[in-house]
Write a protein that binds this DNA or RNA. Structure first.
Lengths: 239, 239
DNA sequence: CGAGGTCTTGAAGACGATCAACAAACGTGG
DNA sequence: CCACGTTTGTTGATCGTCTTCAAGACCTCG
């Protein structure tokens, strides 16, 4: 049930059987969420954190007159609000981009993990640090890359983050966002997303119809995007 | 020597004497850094993490043809690369914006803290989570606020983050960035920073000459910025 | 089959980038 | 302490990217 999360952690360091058991036994109350539903709201003080088992979600923040910003996109196996455990009060919401299956870990169980399982604690901490690294790369992309390059980068990232946990056939993967939502993630208008996408398609590096994307030319896309996967910290080492 | 860091933690939850002692005794090798020097470089695998005692630093990332992005600005008491402890390989550099005093904590000491002091570990984890929250707010500001509003927001944030640890007279505080560096942090050209700043000055909410800023009208600036300090997680509660 | 959302395209306009020139401030050595 | 070179700040003119407004096509799902 939590295979994706475990896989994501084990990719970066070994977990003992006890750690896996401790983590797995803490993850409970699996349920389904409908597309568009909010899993957590800005301002909430949740007593549990949510693991995304299947589907896609996004962190959303509202600013000014009804403008929306998407600050993260989650793929299966992501711990969408692990930070709520210590932050206490949510500074953003989490919205389902597709129908999802999620499960929860109570903060008291997380507390117990931090008291008794230091290495597992470090691994959970690590997942929040990778979150931060992704935020930084998004900031650089928004600040200093043009729309085409930025969009290419986002597709590279989403591909690799799904390839971590899923077996993906031939560079095919899901990008279950509307063009408007993609705009909220990139800081662009929906119209300009559409035009940027047209350019990307014409470059011959990417296809994206409906919700499924296919990278046609990985090296070409990577070059366009100035993509370097270091920030995803995919390496296996003692942590 | 580490008063700012301790103060920052104690603002958010109580620390026991033992915890303070453990943390303080781990912080060593204080030294000075010259303005412009790089404390850590992108790609490094440091064996220690750095606490900023005095002065200001920034996280920098390079993208495309020589473009620079600043993804964080650190104030005294910030743990500039605590995440290196688990991330291992730096996905960004840290540059001194002013002459600084810094000290280091070895990763083996951090390891020991995580093995023996769960609450202190959570508090350190928390500081990296607040980092992430700041990243998210910056993303929203870059994506969905105009230059004036974005700049107003940055000044609000820098004021509050310094007021946390320093006694500031009358809304006076340091913003020791060149206009070019401010552009790197906001995703703007230096020229446009200059023009945006002019507008902010004309709004009568802010002064900024040299390195010292003064907020003349906090509510006005806050409104301009759509600033809500929730994301800085300044509240004192059990964590 | 109709209704609402999503995608696509065009036209006009705003915001910010770039290029260029000069002023002011700073740091360094004479 | 002044002269000098360099960095930083300021302003104007022009250009390009992206936004906004608008309208029509497509699609999906009741």
């Amino acid at each position: 049930m939590t295979a994706h999360l475990i896989r994501k952690l084990e990719l970066r360091d070994e977990l003992s059987e006890e750690e896996k058991e401790l983590l797995t036994s803490s993850i409970r109350h699996s349920r389904t969420i409908r597309e568009g539903e909010e899993i957590v709201r800005q301002g909430d003080r949740p007593a549990v954190s949510t693991v995304l088992l299947e589907g896609f979600t996004a962190r959303t923040q509202h600013v000014g007159e009804g403008a929306r910003s998407i600050t993260s996109i989650h793929v299966p196996g992501d711990f969408v609000d692990l930070h709520a455990f210590l932050i206490k009060k949510m500074d953003h919401g989490v919205t389902a981009l597709t129908d999802c299956r999620v499960a929860t870990v109570s903060h008291s169980d997380l507390q117990r993990i931090t008291e008794t399982a230091p290495h597992l604690t470090r691994m959970l901490w690590l997942t929040t640090l990778i979150d931060g690294a992704i935020h930084r790369r998004w900031l650089a992309a928004m600040g200093r890359q043009n729309a085409v390059s930025h969009m290419a980068h986002l597709f590279c990232e989403l591909y690799l983050r799904q390839a971590e946990v899923l077996r993906l056939p031939d560079y095919k993967f899901l990008v279950p966002l509307s063009q408007a939502a993609l705009g909220d993630a990139m800081g662009l208008s929906a119209v300009h997303v559409n035009r940027t996408l047209k350019q990307l398609r014409q470059s011959g590096t990417l296809e994206w119809t409906g919700r499924e994307a296919t990278i046609l030319d990985w090296d070409g896309l990577r070059t366009l995007a100035d993509f370097d996967p270091t920030y995803l910290h995919l390496e296996h080492e003692p942590r």
